[in-house]
Design a protein around this nucleic acid. Structure first.
Lengths: 249, 249
DNA sequence: CGAGCATTTGAAAGCTGTCAATTCCGGTGG
DNA sequence: CCACCGGAATTGACAGCTTTCAAATGCTCG
């Protein structure tokens, strides 16, 4: 890990997520004007399931996958961490991590030390933490709903739209295209289908002109059709800042 | 809804979950010594998706299912609320409910008014709220992991063990038996499989002497075998007070 | 006893997984 | 610049789990 320092004031993510609250609070002043941050290269773990917990993190740049390993060696991805997202809060703050965090692309990460101490000094942050938790919860519930009872085609479509909208909310899209560092295997482990079937499904969605994934980029070819397929599932996330804006349905 | 009042001091759930914190705080005194509570009969909704939010609730007695409706009419259950559990916190506290809460059996519910106001007066509660959220999150993630990539047999086994352990942690079991008001249809909508297949799976699990569901009761016939099948998946929940205690593996 | 809901059962179709083998592609070394 | 290499993406054939569609049976309550 390459440690260095920088200032929140120039962070492109300062307007989003918990950063906005942190910056507004006294935290900056009490911590020399910025959070410490460091970077990790693609394919490296921020932490692994079982390692001791070191407090909270904010992703400044990059893409991180949260996953658990099953006893049988199966990996289950349950959330993507995108720039501006917070991670690291769990029931037992002093216990080991209950999941792994893997960087898919070169990432920059800010550290939020002493979560409990900060919350006691800044009560607003505890509520902010609860709010972030509620948003993450809503997202995870939405995944549950869409993975439990839908076809492979709908699962893939859902995940594509969800990630697109989350990135769009942070101005990290380029029209209908987003950077997409996930392998087909990552999609498979996220959606609970096999790599082979992900491949077939993507081929079908591309043939039908819905979306395509090429060279680490995902492009939505027919937003209207995609939204018609899985869009309403994402409406509960509107309160979390995830919703379409500026694009016709 | 049959409104009446009662005292937290005699509530069987006062030792569990958020109640413990509420009771410890000044809340009781500032609200005439108790939370208001009321009861709703089985098969009635505490609230429905879309209705306006009225703050938080604690289930004192009964069983509540949280679910969302898909556009195509499919119901997706994503969590069971058991006695002592808190519900009602969501990203947009003033917006409409983003899911429905249905009582499966006659239930008693305590109201927690003015969530934000209470948190501002009792900062500990905000953190408690965040902690509860983290526990619910871990549970939902565990569901995601177990529903995405496992066979119907494992899904049913997982849900049975999860509910058993949660009830056991509250002393609501009778040996290896728990009250179980879920219909096979509720199991189906929770696990993302069809009612027909739930039925076949239950038949198989009973034939193999693992577990059985009869007359609104679930009995674990071979705890060791059940735990071997899905037990390790539940380990992350230990920090939330959900783990085996007093039973041999 | 009848009605309505819930559970059970059977047969056939369909989606998804499994197992291999092949092709594609980016990075490396000669 | 080209051959080589290893990871990732594709493709095919077939088995298997789960769904679908009906129909029958069981159960509870008025």
């Amino acid at each position: 890990m390459n440690k260095h320092t920088g200032f929140c004031s120039v962070c492109p993510m300062r307007r989003f997520g918990i950063c906005a609250s942190l910056v507004k609070s006294e935290l900056e002043k009490s911590h020399s004007g910025h959070l410490h941050h460091f970077s990790i290269p693609a394919k490296h773990h921020l932490f692994r399931q079982g390692e001791s917990n070191n407090g909270g993190y904010i992703l400044r740049k990059g893409w991180i996958l949260l996953s658990r390993m099953s006893k049988d060696g199966t990996r289950q991805v349950f959330r993507s961490i995108l720039p501006g997202d917070f991670l690291g809060f769990q029931p037992d703050l002093n216990g080991p991590h209950i999941y792994s965090a893997l960087a898919l692309s070169d990432s920059e990460i800010c550290t939020v030390p002493d979560l409990l101490e900060i919350c006691s000094k800044h009560p607003d942050l505890a509520l902010q933490l609860a709010w972030i938790g509620a948003c993450d919860m809503t997202l995870t519930e939405t995944y549950l709903v869409n993975i439990a009872h839908r076809s492979a085609r709908e699962k893939v479509a859902f995940m594509a739209l969800e990630l697109f909208l989350r990135l769009q909310a942070r101005d990290l899209n380029r029209g209908y295209t987003i950077q997409f560092p996930l392998l087909q295997e990552d999609l498979a482990d996220s959606l609970g289908i096999t790599t082979v079937h992900v491949n077939r499904t993507l081929k079908s969605l591309k043939k039908d002109g819905i979306l395509k994934i090429e060279k680490q980029e995902l492009t939505i070819l027919d937003y209207k059709a995609l939204y018609a397929m899985v869009g309403t599932q994402l409406e509960p996330l509107a309160a979390c800042g995830i919703s379409e804006n500026g694009f016709e349905k």
